[in-house]
Amino acid sequence: MTPTDELLFRLADDEYVIAERYTEWQIYAPTIESDLALANIAQDEFGHARLWYDLLEERGYEEKNLLWERAPEDFRHSTLCELAFEEGDWADPVVRSYLYDTAERLRLEALVDSSEPAIASRVGKVLSEEGYHREHAQSWLERLSEGESRERVQAALDRLFPHALSLFEPGENEREIVSEGLRTESLFDLREEWFEITIPYLESLGLSVPEPEEVERPEVRGRDGSHTADWFDLHESFTSTYHELGFDQPTRLRGEGA
């Protein structure tokens, strides 16, 4: 895989998988308004996934190999995106989205001046939508971090934080991605910046953030194709109808408002 492809797969797979999980909350969210808001975010993320997968298609891939017939161990998303939700655990999508979208902004900002023009030209649209996602997560975090619900937020943070670290796990081409200027910052530096933003903010809400260097990391890292069991279940559930139907091609509806 070329460095550009690796970079694109990380972007696209993160967005696709987290959106797939967010849609599980549709109809189940605590209120009608929160249902609509999270559905908006899910659709944005699917839209971003499509934008990056489209770019991979321009580079010779096909949708069926990008999503439907790709083996689950070939997906490169962070394990943060794939974890199953526990029923009723609304603190999870709130914390997950905060951790993810903060990292996402930093990553996209480091792509604005990418040496690959096809990437640089697409970043603006994605960045403009991510701001709303962060505001949404923060407004929920601030509300839920007061009173009795704080324990639930803390539990979600303890569970998700180690997985969020895999957002910054380098892939095999990390050195080339930086040296060729595809991304203008290393994952190590992005991670430091992410710590500088997320840790003080979460602490200001009265939450305690696990010590990054001491926290026990899951053995699976996502970026190398190793994933939690939740991912293999999810992959099976979103690809099974595709296989059952046996269509020649996944259907495109571009230009029809879809």
């Binding site: 009608i32 899910a42 099974s240 879809a258």
Partner: peptide, 23 residues
């Protein structure tokens, strides 16, 4: 149907539809 949709475009249309219904 969002989970089962056999293409990315169909999936987007399905999730948007559910959102419309809640709206």
């Amino acid at each position: 149907f969002t989970r089962q949709a056999p293409s990315l475009d169909r999936k987007l249309a399905c999730t948007a539809k559910v959102q419309d219904e809640i709206g």
